[in-house]
Amino acid sequence: MYVLFLCTGNSCRSLMGEAIFNHLAPDGWHAISAGSNPIGKLNSRAVALLQEKGISTAGYYSKSWNDLPVVPDIVISVCDNAAKETCPAYLGPVLRSHWGVEDPAHFEGNEQEIKAAFETAYGILRFRIEQFLALPLQSLQTDPQSLKAELDRIGSLLS
Results as ranks from 00 to 15, higher is better:
L157P: 01
R128I: 14
V94K: 00
F107E: 10
G17V: 12
V3E: 10
I20G: 09
N22I: 12
S62H: 04
I154G: 10
E130T: 15
Y2H: 11
R13G: 11
S11H: 13
L95Y: 05
A89T: 04
F21Q: 15
A31I: 09
A83Q: 15
C79D: 13
L125E: 05
G100V: 02
S36D: 08
P38D: 15
A46G: 04
L42G: 09
N10V: 05
L68A: 00
K63H: 05
T8W: 05
D73P: 05
Y60A: 06
I32Y: 11
S36I: 01
T120E: 08
I124C: 06
P88E: 05
L91G: 07
G9A: 12
I55F: 00
S36P: 00
S11K: 14
L4F: 10
A89M: 08
S11D: 14
Y61T: 03
L158Y: 02
Q131C: 02
A46Q: 03
K148P: 03
E130C: 12
S62E: 07
V71R: 03
E18G: 11
E150A: 13
V94P: 05
Q145M: 04
S11N: 12
A121E: 03
K84V: 08
S56Q: 06
R128G: 10
P69K: 14
C79W: 02
A105Q: 10
H106S: 03
N81D: 06
R126N: 06
N66S: 01
L140G: 09
W99V: 07
S14V: 13
F132D: 06
V47H: 08
N43S: 01
I154L: 14
I124W: 07
W29E: 10
L147Y: 06
G123M: 00
G100C: 07
K41E: 14
Y90E: 08
L137G: 00
E119K: 10
C87H: 11
H23Y: 01
G9D: 08
L157H: 07
A25T: 12
L137D: 04
A25P: 05
S77G: 10
P104F: 02
P72C: 06
L91F: 11
T8D: 08
S64F: 00
H98S: 14
S36T: 15
A121G: 06
S156D: 14
E113Y: 05
F118T: 02
